[in-house]
């Protein structure tokens, strides 16, 4: 038996909107510690890892570990039927081939339930090693989204370079080139407007903008984004989910042949 009650249901709606175009089908894993997901995109270039800790739910019951295969497009269709202020409860019985999403309006005058068919997904679970990253940049998520969108109008790839001067996003395409430098800026009114660069070694890596742009669909989940880079590793683009956990996108770099 599984029953998870999330008062801020909009978080789950936003999570789905941010991953449904990257991943078609995924297993949601439920344990006593939380509700999580790990899935690769169909080209096996990017990986998304989601964690919603049990403490973030108003009610969290998970009698035994469960893995529920869901089509994210279908799940998104159902969650779109929940209001932004609705409380969302996820329910499933042991061994059942369906999951139920229940939506309650804040005033309890409208209660809906949607039952969705589960699917068997033979997904590979990858081990993500703990890593010390050479450069970690935290910046406003809207700024990062703006940069990715702007650069994708000019080129297909972005070179992210971190030096002690700042973080540089560069692209090149048929019409020309673009360089955007964001310098460390901690003298702002609000901490979420700061750009903070923690660099132990300078790093420069090339990534496909198509994926970066897809990751920025999670911008609504957090005011800030953290980009962790090391020369021999996929980049990690992390959006914290208030009080609950995170959504992390891993993207393998492109290298010169």
């Amino acid at each position: 038996m599984l029953e998870l009650r999330l008062v801020q249901g909009s978080l789950l709606k936003k999570v789905l909107e941010s991953i449904k175009d990257l991943v078609n089908d995924a297993n949601f894993d439920c344990s006593s510690s939380g509700f999580s997901l790990q899935a690769m995109d169909s080209s096996h270039v990017a990986l998304v890892a989601l964690l919603l800790r049990s403490e973030g739910f108003e009610h969290y019951r998970c009698d035994r570990n469960m893995s529920m295969g869901m089509n994210l497009g279908n799940m998104s269709k159902m969650l779109r039927c929940a209001g932004n202020d609705d409380i969302i409860t996820i329910k499933a019985d042991d061994g059942s081939d369906t999951v139920t999403f229940m939506f309650e309006s804040p005033t309890q005058d409208k209660i809906s339930d949607f039952e969705m068919k589960l699917m068997d997904i033979d997904s590979e679970h990858l081990g993500i090693p703990e890593a010390e990253y050479q450069s970690i940049v935290t910046m406003p998520s809207a700024e990062f989204a703006r940069i990715c969108k702007d650069l994708s109008g000019i080129g297909d790839t972005v070179v992210i370079s971190v030096t002690k001067e700042g973080v540089k996003f560069s692209t090149r395409g048929d019409i020309g080139t673009a360089n955007i430098v964001c310098r460390q800026n901690t003298t702002v009114d609000k901490p979420e407007e700061a750009t903070v660069i923690n660099m132990s070694e300078p790093v420069s890596l090339t990534f496909a903008l198509r994926y970066m742009n897809s990751f920025t669909k999670a911008t609504t989940l957090s005011n800030t984004v953290t980009i962790s880079l090391s020369s021999e590793l996929p980049v990690v683009v992390e959006y914290k989910i208030a009080e609950m956990g995170y959504i992390r996108f891993y993207l393998a770099p492109k290298i010169e042949e």
């Binding site: 990986l47 990858l126 790839t157 492109k254």
Partner: peptide, 14 residues
């Protein structure tokens, strides 16, 4: 252009 690497090159199956 540069070659896209696969994520599975960095993270192995568990």
């Amino acid at each position: 252009g540069p070659k896209q690497l696969a994520i599975t090159r960095f993270f192995s199956k568990v």
